[in-house]
Amino acid sequence: MSRTILEARGIVRDYHMRGGLFTPARTVHAVKGVSFSLEEGKTLAIVGESGSGKSTLARILTMIDAPTAGELTIDGEKIDILANGLTAEQRRKVQIVFQNPYGSLNPRQKIGDVLAEPLVINTDKPAGERRDLAMQMLMKVGLSPEHFNRYPHMFSGGQRQRIAIARALMLNPKLLVLDEPVSALDLSVQAQVLNLLADLQDEFGLTYVFISHDLSVVRYIADEVMVMYLGEAVEYGTREEVFSSPKHDYTKTLFAATPRADVESIRKRLARRAA
């Protein structure tokens, strides 16, 4: 019943740095041969530290950037933006939400216009219909009609992230890439946004690629988990596999480094401290 919506095979991305007066030219291997496949309606979490190539991978999955080598298939279509470019339909299918909602909204654009803009660019719907669709989406993400004519600076961080999610959903995408969507948010707001994402996934049958460095969030939201380290996928499996029996040393280090907030580990620490 469930079909594969996203498939990546041997994705490689190199960046060539031109040499300067004192530095020789060099090549940075940001992503080194990553493969995975993702079924419709599921969530894949990509975990890694800064410099692990997870955001580069996000750019490739959203077709912003082309891979140096490897094959990307989205919804059954092979994607090669260098050779064939992109059709409007392909662009519609994949959308992205960035970490920092302050940076991803135009400060001089009203929220209603922010939400309607993808429709202006990608469809030929009349203004009235665009307005209605934007208003509907605004309500869907838990904001109210009076927010329609406000500017981004009038919103809190959590509300702005809701707006960014709403904008990404305006074109009815199939795949949503979420690049650290809750990292900049407070705990209480983080819970609200994670719940919203779960509701939207149920309602629209969305597939998520969820990029994060927070293992507790990943454990909560993911169906499948991929751990990246220095451009390589060192661990890939279902959530249960990865969390119950991590195979790679780096994954184990990552788990050991995550602070634990349960009573048992506090007791152990206090006992060590007293000793």
Binding site: L187, Q190, A191, N195
Partner: peptide
């Protein structure tokens, strides 16, 4: 209590309690 319950570690079921 709400702050501790909102930790994804302590999540019960598929929704996080909000603060």
């Amino acid at each position: 209590r709400a702050l501790l319950a909102a930790l994804p570690d302590n999540a019960v079921g598929d929704r996080l309690p909000t603060i």
